[in-house]
Design a protein around this nucleic acid. Sequence first.
DNA 1: ATCCCGAGGG
DNA 2: CCCTCTGGAT
Length: 215
Amino acid sequence: MELSQPEIIVKRLRILYDLSKSRDEFLHFNNPYEILIATILSAQTTDKTVNLVTKELFSRFPSVSDLAKAGIGDVERIIHPTGFFHAKARNIIAASQMVVKDFGGEVPDRMEDLVRLPGVGRKTANIVLNHAFSKIEGIAVDTHVRRVSMRLGLTNQSEPDKIESDLTRVFSPDMWGEINGLFILHGRRICTARKPACMACVLADICRFVSNPSD
DNA sequence: ATCCCGAGGG
DNA sequence: CCCTCTGGAT
């Protein structure tokens, strides 16, 4: 039977990248509280740094109610290596307080509630939904997903929200959960912003960027 | 120098 | 659309 272009893309990237190994750095955070906080901290830093600081953070503040009562200075010192520590410390404490007050101490499992938490945007909310609740409600669009999608011609938009709606139209819902991880890995290893390795790319034959490098 | 599995604000 | 927030890795 004939595969559609999006199916071909997913199929080939799946063979190339083992998501069960590389995607779930947050798999060892087993409750929604830890997943939420670790995901907020992961903005603009590496998972190694997040793993380093969360070790101390979660042993000092084991539950969301502990973090809700934490002092800003203690939290800032612990998470300092992740960068943006002032905003992140403020956000994770305020988010914890909001979870305690507005959600009875349970991290919410709906997109519209999650994005109201300070420090939580669509991207973070999507990851929390995925990892903490196994709910797929869309495709998290970051700079990698955006660049790869545009080069492949899966969207002509540049705003993340519009790209997401294009992608959710193009890919069937059972593929949504893996698009983010697959495209991020591909975007970092092959389809890089500068000097993409098109000659080593398994999608080169169906990618319009190869013949029209314009981005 | 440049980039990171962003969010919030103007 | 733009800018700012920040440290660490390469």
